[in-house]
């Protein structure tokens, strides 16, 4: 099968710091890629390059047979990007915001209206479509953000921590949504810290640390050697220190103090 996203020797530096160091990756259509890594590993940088937001990088990125550097606009219209920060123009109502975004993707008013209302209806917030978003909860904003990313029916969906702030039912809905999108043949690039979710929804997991890919495979392939959960594999590959030991010393801090104050009280 031909890959839909091909990344070759991708590097990106911020001054002295290398955010991405020679990353190469192939993503196939209809796959859900779980893209994980600790803070500052280079996840968001990769995603922003793919979404066409960062354009000064080294290396080569090809999407659907087109070189990203030469076809930014064509590629952007194929991608639905749902960023990590729920930054919206929240003085607008959800309807107004989605109309604004829809226009940026050249959608007609009717299409925007029908898609926006049915998507927000599925999320259970259609009642609030005409309210300004500055009164929305974090979860409601996240739902609008997801809707805005899918409004133009993209073939590749990039989600950066899409579940943050969502309530339990909405989390279940998004997980279902991922499967529906996958069944429609869409490719999903899923960045998250929530290991259990990544483990369950992803066809393939790519682990990045310090700008380099340190593991790449299905969950079964990653487990093959140790039999550990994804959480354990993650901490083994990305941390040099024993996290359990650190947590222990954190907790013992209170214990020692209690003993001290107990002694002084007596």
């Amino acid at each position: 099968m031909e890959s839909i996203i091909t990344i070759r020797s991708l590097s990106k530096r911020y001054g002295e710091k290398a955010a991405l160091n020679n990353v190469s990756l192939d993503v196939y259509p209809g796959q859900i890629i779980g893209y994980i890594g600790p803070n500052g590993a280079g996840k968001s940088t990769t995603v922003k390059i793919l979404a066409g937001i960062i354009q000064d990088y080294e290396g080569e990125v090809t999407v659907d047979g087109m070189k990203l550097s030469d076809n930014v606009l064509a590629i952007k219209s194929k991608i639905g990007y749902i960023p990590e920060l729920t930054e919206l123009y929240d003085l607008l109502t959800a309807r107004e915001y989605l109309k604004f975004v829809g226009k940026l993707y050249h959608l007609s008013d009717d299409v925007i209206e029908s898609r926006a209302t049915s998507m927000l209806d599925s999320f259970g917030i259609l009642d609030s479509i005409d309210n300004r978003m500055d009164g929305y909860s974090k979860g409601m904003r996240q739902k609008v953000l997801i809707t805005s990313g899918l409004l133009h029916n993209p073939s590749i969906v990039i989600m950066d921590e899409p579940l943050s702030g969502l309530d339990a039912n909405a989390v279940i809905m998004v997980k279902e949504l991922l499967q529906v999108l996958k069944a429609e043949g869409k490719t999903i690039f899923y960045c998250s810290h929530m290991m259990d979710v990544v483990e369950r929804v992803s066809d393939r997991i790519v682990l990045i640390d310090k700008g380099e890919i340190v593991a790449d495979g299905t969950i079964d392939e990653l487990r093959k050697d140790s039999g550990d959960s994804l959480e354990k594999i993650f901490s083994k590959l990305t941390s040099n220190e024993d996290i359990a030991l650190k947590a222990g010393s954190f907790a013992s801090l209170f214990k020692n103090q209690e003993e001290e104050t107990g002694a002084s009280d007596e």
Partner: peptide, 17 residues
């Protein structure tokens, strides 16, 4: 200018020629 200037990511991720 805006307090929510970061929300302008949407221009950059959309296919705006």
């Amino acid at each position: 200018m805006s307090e929510h200037y970061k929300a302008s990511w949407v221009y950059f991720s959309s296919p705006l020629q």
